[in-house]
Amino acid sequence: MIGRAVLAVLLAGIAAGLVMGVIQHVRLTPLILEAEVFERAGGSASHSHGAAPEAGTTAESGGHDHDHGEGWKPEDGWPRTLATTFTAAMTGAGFAAILAAVSLLTGLQISRKNGILWGLCGFLAVTLAPAAGLPPELPGMTAADLFARQVWWVGTIAATAAGIYLFATQTRAAALVLAAVLILAPHVIGAPVPPQGENLIPAELIARFVSNSIAANAVFWCIIGVFLGLVLGQTAKDIYAT
């Protein structure tokens, strides 16, 4: 059983990752590369970390050296595209596994018919709700402390998912009020606020990236949901019988 479920999440992850990889290559990574040019231009003015490399293979990826140590990084071009597609599939499989885990732990079956709904709920919880406080970032944007953002991001996802679960399964007024509170709470508390300072990245570039990223994630999640429904719905019917 668990083998079938793992197969289902891998298939869903690979399918979603391949499509996401194409969307990233066409619509998202070009904007990241553009932002890295601004990041490097601003970075060389405000940071002095040795001589900036002249144009060449290291220049493209050099933009993050002020944030992170050296280390292997995929070269620009196909290696970078492959690394991106691979990690998109990995993320897809990770999200699919968590979605399947929610289904198994709550006993709410993912089926062929409702797979896309599961995917859309994943999109609401993991992409849309956190994006209201922490929109998808481009390199070079000013941002609050990383750990604080990660905590708010994960907390918002958990609270939103719990709220969606209550809305989907409960009818009592108290439960519905609790669901609304759970969904609203992260936004009342508020996401970590970035420090004051000039933003290196043009707002127009950020707007294009944010809208394309959110749209791409909607596709990503729909594919995850549909594939999970197709595979898990067929192979794991018996496990939900309890």
């Binding site: 992850g13 990574t29 993050h64 280390g71 991106t84 993320t91 990770g94 922490l134 994630n217 990503f220």
Partner: peptide, 28 residues
């Protein structure tokens, strides 16, 4: 899987998943 792709601060993990982290909206 999600931690490795989205949160690990290891340089290699960060550099490999860099564009995906930005695209998915992970805090990076």
């Amino acid at each position: 899987l999600t931690f490795a792709a989205g949160f690990s601060s290891m340089a290699v993990a960060h550099n490999t998943a860099h564009d995906t982290r930005h695209a998915i909206g992970f805090p990076c």
